[in-house]
């Protein structure tokens, strides 16, 4: 029974675009893009490498792709890999000194927090090219659908692009989970010195996973840009997005493959519901702007206290616990 569930979901995901109205399809695409980003974050987050700088990698992914396209006419097919490499270099520049000088835990989080602000400020400051805080729009190619420009006027095609990227993210998660690197990183998160004594290259292992995570996040940012055809420094970067990434993964579940995806579904649906609710209240003259952010903050605290493994993690634990009781 449980074995057939992935096939059913897979089948539904493939037929979804042909039977879904535009708005839910839009939500599905957004969920898949964000799921990719959240999965990318959890690659390193699950080993105690808490980054508050993933907004920076998303921005790099989006802006490098879009700037190359608008100013040099370089196709996103080359621009996206270039953006991913840029993100990897940025991750290396920030993470290498951190790991070499044993900046871990809270201090690492603070360094990465600074990174997301620095990248945001650089984007705003170079407004002549990036449009600053007003945002940036990639040039449309022809009538809006162009394989060369990775632009699709219809949502259905784009849906399959992001579906593929999301599956890629999950495959990478699984490969890391099955690799020796996972053992190494697990032990590093427990005790760095003991890991080094056991023959693990501590700095190297941490650096690899950080760069992998940054690269996938940049891919997510680039796809967001290609789909929305609009990016802004606060829309896909800055502290707000960096925290949103952490929040969603914690809600969904940090230690399971599908956790980040569940987190994306929950947070995106919540955002949509709040948005509609606040808008409808506003028409009645009640302004509750900012309420959604406050509720997020409260929920994050509650989740960390009561559901530290996230919704999916808790669910799996409950199911496994129930099964164990049955057999005893």
């Amino acid at each position: 029974m449980t074995r057939t569930i992935p096939f059913i979901i897979g089948f539904l995901l493939v037929v979804a675009p042909f039977s879904t109205p535009q708005y839910p399809l839009h939500l599905l695409i957004m969920i898949l893009i964000w799921s990719l980003v959240y999965t990318a974050w959890s690659l390193m987050g699950r080993f105690g490498l808490v980054s508050l700088g993933h907004g920076a990698f998303m921005s790099i992914g989006a802006y490098v792709t879009a700037l190359l396209w608008n100013y040099s006419g370089i196709s996103p097919w080359i621009g996206i890999p270039a953006a991913m490499i840029t993100a990897a270099i940025m991750a290396f520049l920030v993470a290498y000194p951190c790991f070499q000088f044993k900046i871990v835990g809270h201090y690492f989080a603070l360094v990465t927090l600074a990174l997301s602000e620095v990248v945001k400020l650089v984007i705003i400051a170079s407004r002549d090219h990036t449009g600053g805080s007003l945002g940036f729009t990639p040039n449309r190619e022809g009538d809006g659908t162009s394989f060369y420009a990775l632009q699709f006027a219809d949502k259905e095609t784009f849906y399959f692009v992001v579906l593929g990227a999301w599956v890629l993210g999950l495959v990478i998660w699984r490969l890391v989970d099955k690799s020796m690197m996972r053992y190494a990183l697990d032990s590093i998160s427990e005790d760095e010195d003991a890991s080094a004594a056991a023959g693990i290259h501590v700095t190297g292992s941490k650096l690899k996973i950080t760069m992998l995570s940054a690269v996938l996040t940049a891919l997510g940012g680039a796809l967001y840009c290609q789909y929305q055809m609009f990016i802004g420094p606060e829309v896909i970067g800055g502290i707000g997005i960096s925290l949103q990434i952490v929040f969603a993964v914690v809600v969904g579940g940090l230690y399971t493959m599908m956790g980040p995806t569940i987190g994306a579904i929950i947070t995106l649906l919540m955002t949509e519901i709040f948005r509609n609710w606040i808008t409808s209240l506003r028409t009645e003259g009640i302004d509750l702007a900012g309420l959604d952010t406050s509720i997020y903050g409260l929920m994050l605290i509650l989740f960390i206290i009561f559901l530290p493994k996230g919704v999916l993690g808790e669910l799996i634990d409950r199911l496994a616990g129930g099964r164990q009781k049955d057999t005893s």
Partner: peptide, 26 residues
């Protein structure tokens, strides 16, 4: 050269076998 660190420094959240296997990571 293998180092048995002071205070043992095992990975407490891992099984004994995983701890041992990690010793052969080199």
């Amino acid at each position: 050269i293998a180092h048995v660190p002071e205070n043992r420094r095992l990975f407490p959240g891992m099984s004994v076998e995983d701890n041992l296997k990690l010793g052969a990571f080199a």
